[in-house]
Amino acid sequence: MNEFICDRDNYERFLNEFTAGSRVESPLSLEVFGNPSAGPLPDIATFFLNSNKAHGLDKNYIIANGTKLSMDDSGAELIRFITDHPRATLAEIIEHSGTPEAQIRELITQLCRNDILGMIF
């Protein structure tokens, strides 16, 4: 039994399951994400991770509100920046990133729709 508990893979699976079961309540901005005629995301919007911890980010995945999402390097960099700078605006995120603006906007939109990120504006 001791070997099972001390096994690194078992511990990682436990953390994944525990993190997946933790929820951070955040309102969905229906006026932005539910309106097909809404314009682009506002540059003054700020974003936050819908999780108490950025678990898995070192392995290019994130678990937030029950969703596990694998990411490429640009997605992981975006999440790292948002967790390190929780009050950064969209304009600041775009300025910091080496990824094209349209791609950042689309990625953030999809992360918000999937309840990985929350938005305040």
Rank of each mutant, 00 (worst) to 15 (best):
Thr83Met: 05
Ile63Asn: 00
Ile79His: 03
Cys112Tyr: 01
Glu17His: 10
His85Trp: 02
Ile104Met: 09
Glu101Met: 05
Thr109Lys: 09
Asn35Gln: 07
Gly39Leu: 08
Leu78Lys: 02
Thr19Gln: 00
Ile63His: 03
Glu17Phe: 03
Cys6Gln: 14
Phe4His: 12
Glu12Met: 04
Gly39Cys: 15
Asn50Ala: 08
Asn16Phe: 05
Asn2Ser: 14
Ser51Trp: 03
Thr99Tyr: 03
Leu49Glu: 03
Gln110Phe: 08
Asp58Leu: 11
Phe81His: 12
Ala76Asn: 10
Glu101Gln: 08
Val32Gly: 01
Asp72Ile: 07
Glu77Met: 04
Pro27Gln: 10
Arg113Pro: 02
Gly39Ala: 13
Met1Gln: 12
Thr109Cys: 08
Asn10His: 14
Ile5Glu: 13
Asp9His: 13
Asn10Cys: 13
Ser26Phe: 11
Ala20Val: 09
Ile108Met: 07
Ile5Val: 12
Thr99Asp: 03
Asn114Gln: 12
Pro36Lys: 15
Gln103Val: 13
His96Ile: 03
Phe14Lys: 07
Gly98His: 05
Asn10Tyr: 14
Pro100Thr: 03
Ser74His: 14
Ser26Gln: 02
Ser97Pro: 05
Thr19Gly: 00
Gln110Lys: 13
Leu30Lys: 08
Phe18Ala: 12
Gly98Gln: 06
His85Met: 04
Asp73Met: 09
Leu41Trp: 00
Ile93Pro: 00
Pro86Glu: 05
His55Glu: 13
Ala88Cys: 08
Ile108Trp: 00
Leu30Gly: 03
Arg87Tyr: 09
Thr19Val: 11
Phe14Tyr: 14
Val24Ile: 15
Arg13Asn: 10
Lys68Tyr: 09
Ala54Asn: 13
Arg13Ile: 11
Ser97Gln: 02
Phe4Cys: 12
Leu41Thr: 00
Asn16Gln: 13
His85Ile: 10
Thr89Glu: 02
Ser51Leu: 05
Arg87Cys: 06
His55Trp: 07
Cys112His: 00
Met71Gly: 00
Glu25His: 14
Glu12Ser: 11
Leu15Asn: 09
Asp84Gly: 14
Ser37Cys: 10
